[in-house]
Design a protein around this nucleic acid. Structure first.
Lengths: 217, 217, 217, 217
DNA sequence: CATGAATGAGACTTCATTCAT
DNA sequence: GATGAATGAAGTCTCATTCAT
């Protein structure tokens, strides 16, 4: 069964493709840890090599470029981050036809698990997002038109039923994303050690905050 | 009358104290622009010097270190960012004894202006915040106990009157800050060019979103 | 058989441990020459690199710091300089129970050879000694208590037998060292080219000068 | 009455010549202190300017070059160091026709006072001596033929009377100088703080050491 | 005369990347 | 495939010196 942890996936992928070495695993593992901790720009390939117990040349043999290594680490995360939201979105609504609140809860729970399991990569992505337009451009296409259309019609339904406020869809989506990613950033980057309350409770609070904030007046 | 724009303040300060040179102004101006655009780590002092039409040594004659230059640019911004929020908070509530919604609106409006006028520095601060613990440590003391106490008692009052949900104060504050700064980050960093709607309207939406989200059930 | 020349030792050490490269040897060789000639502070790493036919980065890949390179060159010399004196001292006296004169002669001869073979490094050490307290601190511990004790009791014996003047031991030692190193400095640094007389004769003169100077009245 | 302290002399000289400013005095004073403490190469003109309370340009207005400032500081010291030895030498012998020991004593005492009063400049000279051949070349001519001739004939006289060992004059002079300057260097540079015994006693010991060391067998 | 802002050459150092072994 | 020595471009920073004010 395929794990939710990106690292595992990378391992699987590479095992399938080309008799992935332990060394490659180690490189990726260490790179993730160091990029997350000190940032991509402040981590040198020689540090990674040393920490991974590998010759510096080996990194370049496998990944060609430092930037390539970053992408190798980030891409599967990005691929999973939004598409799964979308699928979840669709399935969550389809199956249960629940309220917005219920839906938001499911999404947040799901993403919480995902990010919690990949905290380091999340760190990297957030930090690099601010610098590299490339990342944003690579990110957007995953938000396919099909999915967007579905989200739009769903939101329209909620708006029609008077459950949520009547605002343009992009505005609503932006509000949800801002709140959710704002929360995750604070939770997993800035206040890592401050554990105000339990996971379940925090998710519940955030869910209520968002769904109430979007309620029709 | 002292402007709200940090750049102006730096100019004023230096004009008053050291007979600041045109070159120094140029250096700071260019540094802000480049740090914001490419990030502190990815901007070299030689680039700054060249763009400012100045010898590289001149930068170091005045600021000693590249990091010093960053601080010179960031510090007044940080000094203004939170304390003013706090003062506004106190005064806004005191004067008008209005609802939470009214208060949130005032704060957001005020901060919107401030950040709008100092977009570049805001960019720099957000980006560096994720890397440098130093910044956070320099930031926190401005949130004085006096202010925090006031905020706490105010929130308690709102909770007592049943206007807002009964949650621990740190949780409420965190939610507000997350939403507000999440919004600003999206607005001024990530989606600079996407102007979904007018400024007034956006502030209004965010205000309602937050104050409703915190309403008692 | 291990040579008395430090350069040889460095080569041996590195050949044994790290498969030392020709380039590394060349770097050390050139560094010694240039440090000796122009002084550590007045020799740039780029000069060394150019003269050694190596990229400047190569120096730092191996030695990390310019100061490290200096230490790499100096340390084995310092390690040998005094301890060997001490051992010689002990053995020389022990074996033959000869007069002070005989002992001084042995020591000077031995040190003459040593410094003669490592003239350049001696130059470096003398010059840097005056600037860096670090060096002195690294130097002193080699003068172990055991050795000092032995020297003291030996000098006491000479004093008891009436062969040498009755002065505090530190004073006597200081006089010997001052004369010997004063001589070496003049011989190998200041008047390199002036060869007043043959080596054997000079040693003999210095020996007599010191041993007579210390004779009891 | 003309002082023995070089600083005073520089002051006098400059007062006589060109309405010497307090600033120039301060510059020289500070330069001496800093060159002595940290070495010429490790002292920057900006440091000197700051410590002297003077603009950096002022230094160059007066002395043109950093090296010039060094020379301005060193030259009068050098001029006094040896010539006075020579004069003393001549007069000491002439007047009292005493033994070598008496003569050596007078010279050492005299030089001790001189160097003691100008410790900082002595430090500078010793340190720079090792680097700059220029200094040596500037130094030698002061040892005039007339003086040398006198020393030679005097030494010859002592040798003829059987008081001192029969060695070539340069060898004898070198031995004396080596011992004396070796002692001064140890006393005023390396072991500044270690005061083994009183000044008078140390001079006496050194005098006896040298004169005995040179005695005919 | 004095100032100090400005300069620019050059110092030390880092690091992604290449390539012979 | 793996290694790690070597590279060289680029980065931060220092400092003696100049020159307009």
């Amino acid at each position: 069964m395929s794990s939710d942890n990106i690292l595992d996936k990378i391992y699987e992928k590479s095992k399938l493709s080309n008799k992935e070495t332990t060394k490659q695993q180690k490189i990726v593992e260490i790179a993730i840890k160091m990029f997350a901790e000190k940032g991509y720009a402040n981590t040198s390939t020689s540090e990674i090599a040393k920490a991974a117990g590998v010759a510096e040349g080996t990194i370049f043999r496998h990944y060609g470029t430092k930037e390539n290594l970053l992408m190798w680490v980030i891409t599967p995360f990005l691929k999973d981050l939004i598409p799964v939201i979308a699928r979840e979105f669709i399935e969550g609504i389809d199956k249960d036809a629940k309220s917005l609140e219920e839906f938001v809860r499911i999404v947040i729970q799901n993403r919480y698990e995902f990010i919690n399991k990949n905290q380091d990569i999340f760190c990297i992505v957030v930090k690099e997002f601010l610098y590299k337009d490339v990342l944003i451009k690579e990110f957007i296409p995953y938000m396919s038109n099909y999915v967007l259309d579905f989200i739009y019609t769903t939101l329209d339904k909620f708006k029609a039923s008077g459950e949520i406020i009547d605002l343009p869809n992009p505005v609503i989506i932006r509000m949800i994303l801002t709140s959710v990613f704002g929360y995750f950033t604070m939770r997993f980057l800035l206040l890592k050690e401050y554990n105000i309350s339990g996971k379940e409770e925090e998710i519940e609070l955030l869910t209520r905050f968002i769904s109430r904030g979007l309620k029709a007046p």
